[in-house]
């Protein structure tokens, strides 16, 4: 088997220092193979966005800082790269799509200019040629009447259209890896499906890998090859999407699954919420950080921190109660 495109090893990102410090990403490791779609799932504050920002080294510093681990991308350790070389990678070999298409485009500039900017920047292409390329990109994300749209401003587009523009920008330099941070959270459900289909199709065409950050398990089931479930800054379970749905091992994953409605459920069956609040990252409970909310808690959960363990070759989990311990 070939080497993965991206290997994240023991990544730890911390905000602040001393007593008030918060470890937003704690000892996270995962791989992304070429052409693969990996979903990172978790509730708000579970560290999924910070993981993404850490890969691009865009965590605001101070207060944030990557304090440990390594991020191997194509043989380069991104955590040790000087800022200048990092800039040459951002938008060129790793592109990012942000959560809010309504505010992620510069309101004062035409969209043609904004799509052409990474092309001009990384491929050193003159503006005129970059504009032609931008038109092709708009065609590829199925923007109707792409040519005349180049000179429009962002406020003239709907949310879904803007996200298409963001995708066109991300694809501009044919990156090997695209990180999409909740790309559809701000959109209507029907538009969500269109955007994700488009993203999936385009990454398949170009052979790019995709890291899809979301809190929507429905999205994950449909579009991801592999899934990492994050809780309290840690990955608590990772498996192929199929395996995770068939055989969730961590009680948190099971809780997430039980809390979404299913079409094959008989009517009148109540959804089971996960009780309690997401953990305060500044004061994580001892042992497993999920233990105060867990229905299957045993003594060991309050004492020892579980690390990722193999259930089988591809399915890892961090729970003491699982039969595979």
């Amino acid at each position: 088997m070939t080497k993965p495109l991206l290997q994240v090893r023991n990544l730890t990102t911390r905000f602040g220092h001393g007593l008030g410090s918060v470890t937003a990403v704690n000892n996270v490791s995962f791989d992304v193979n070429a052409g693969e779609t990996v979903a990172i799932v978790g509730e708000s504050g579970s560290g999924k966005s910070i993981t993404a920002l850490s890969i691009l080294r865009l965590v605001p510093e101070p207060p944030g800082k990557i304090v440990g681990g390594e991020i191997l991308f194509d043989g380069l350790d991104l955590t040790k790269l000087p800022e200048e070389e990092m800039r040459a990678i951002r938008g060129n070999r790793i592109a990012m799509i942000f959560q809010e298409p309504m505010t992620s485009l510069n309101p004062s500039l035409t969209i043609g200019l904004q799509i052409a900017e990474p092309i001009n920047l990384h491929m050193k292409m003159p503006w005129q040629k970059a504009y032609d390329k931008a038109k092709q990109l708009l065609d590829r994300v199925r923007m109707p009447d792409a040519k005349s749209r180049l000179s429009s401003h962002p406020h003239q587009f709907s949310g879904g259209m803007r996200q298409r523009i963001m995708i066109a920008m991300a694809l501009a330099c044919q990156p090997k890896l695209i990180i999409a941070d909740e790309p559809t959270t701000a959109l209507d459900v029907t538009v969500q499906a269109q955007i994700l289909e488009l993203l999936k199709e385009l990454t398949r065409e170009t052979g790019s890998s995709l890291i899809l950050i979301t809190h929507d398990l429905g999205v994950v089931a449909r579009y991801a090859d592999r899934v990492c479930v994050m809780y309290g800054g840690k990955i608590i379970e990772t498996a192929s999407a199929h395996d995770l749905y068939a055989r969730p091992l961590h009680p948190y994953t099971r809780g997430l699954m039980a809390s979404i409605p299913r079409l094959d459920q008989p009517p009148g069956v109540r959804l089971v919420p996960i009780k309690g609040q997401p953990p305060n990252l500044a004061q994580l409970p001892p042992g497993c950080s999920f233990n105060p909310r867990c229905g299957e808690v045993i003594d060991r959960c309050r004492r020892d921190v579980p690390e990722l363990m193999h259930a089988d070759e591809k399915h890892l989990h961090a729970c003491w109660t699982s039969p595979h311990v």
Binding site: G91, P118, M169
Partner: peptide, 19 residues
């Protein structure tokens, strides 16, 4: 967020300031 987006496509600081 469009400034964050501009940083994420790898723009240098003078370029982000100007554009």
């Amino acid at each position: 967020s469009y400034i964050h987006a501009a940083q994420s496509i790898g723009g240098t600081t003078p370029r982000i300031l100007w554009y």
